[in-house]
Amino acid sequence: MGYAAGQLPEAFSLVVATHVSLCDECRAQLASFDAVGGALIEETDEIAMAEGALAASLARIETLDRKSQPAPRRSAGVFPAPLAEYVGGDLSAVRWRRVGGGVRQAILPTGKDATARLLYIPAGTAVPDHGHRGLELTLVLQGAFSDETDRFGRGDVEIADEDLEHTPVAMAGQDCICLAATDAPLKFRGLIPRLAQPLLRI
């Protein structure tokens, strides 16, 4: 609902939009929230437009019409369109950085109130045991991971908050690629990941 009302930090919006691109059920739910917005628009008091506003809008359309009509946005790759727009391409366009243990990450450019990163976890590898200070959304794009709570495959989102401490492990068979957004730094239990945290911005 926060997404429908346009209030989420940019990084969370990116996860929601990417997930909705993969999940018809959530797309339908989002449509029902948007419909509340539509009903509010219908109910609202009006504020008169300026004199000549219609003519001005039509003039704007004249200039728009000369440009090409926007095409539907769709992606055939691993990344759905909203994510591909942030990365500037599909998987091959990602500039990975090693964070240790074979795990790689790429931080995406979003607003400061939350951060979004892509994670690459080789099949069978574990991410160090950690807890959360705020909200963490993790969306699986390729492969799968499991932790103490469940198994997550492509399109699934794990929602983690202060109450969850987990050790996600990429399932065997395929390297796991995730999109994760957090609004606060993670809490690692191990000393080495804790020391490395400020350097890696996690």
């Binding site: 940019e10 929601v16 939009a17 909705v20 989002l30 909203p82 994510l83 727009e85």
Partner: peptide, 11 residues
């Protein structure tokens, strides 16, 4: 002045 990602259009 922030970007907001939009879901991809349906097939």
């Amino acid at each position: 002045r922030a970007r907001r990602a939009e879901p991809e259009d349906l097939d």
